[in-house]
């Protein structure tokens, strides 16, 4: 059971990291602001893995507690947590050497949703067939 959830996490982490890296490049070309010192490639990959692994753990726990309703509760919670995560890039104070901090939420806010989007995208591959 946990092996399947772990694979789910790994695949969605890869997707989320790819999406984040692509979006970072697009944002850089669009705004010519470089936030790589705050969100480096390594950090983006690490954050994607961390979030997806956390989601997998939460999924596993909720499925154990709520059985059939576990998936529904998980989806609801993951969406809520992702939405609350919007506050992180908005409220964070960047190092003073970073220019145009007012443009950082434009980069960070969409990225907050990438792990959830990736999780739901690959979800059909791991859904139990009844």
């Amino acid at each position: 059971m946990f092996k399947k959830v772990f694979l789910h996490a790994l695949l969605s982490a890869c997707l989320a990291a790819i999406a984040a890296l692509l979006y970072q490049r697009i944002y850089f070309f669009a705004t010519e602001t470089d936030f790589s010192s705050v969100l480096s490639t390594g950090k983006l990959i690490a954050l994607s893995i961390l979030t997806s692994t956390g989601a997998a753990l939460l999924n596993h726990i909720l499925n154990r507690i709520f059985k059939k309703r576990g998936e529904m509760v998980f989806n609801f919670l993951f969406s809520i947590i992702s939405f609350m995560g919007v506050m992180v890039p908005i409220s964070i104070s960047l190092p003073l050497a970073v220019h145009s901090p007012e443009l950082f939420p434009g980069l960070g806010v969409p990225m907050v949703f990438f792990p959830a989007m990736a999780w739901y995208t690959v979800n059909p591959l791991f859904v139990k067939k009844t």
Binding site: I90, S91, I92, S93, L94, P95, L96, V98, S100, P101, E102, L103, F104, P105
Partner: peptide
């Protein structure tokens, strides 16, 4: 002024 946060700067 630069606080490192766009919202705070505004």
């Amino acid at each position: 002024i630069n606080t490192g946060n766009g919202m705070k700067n505004t």
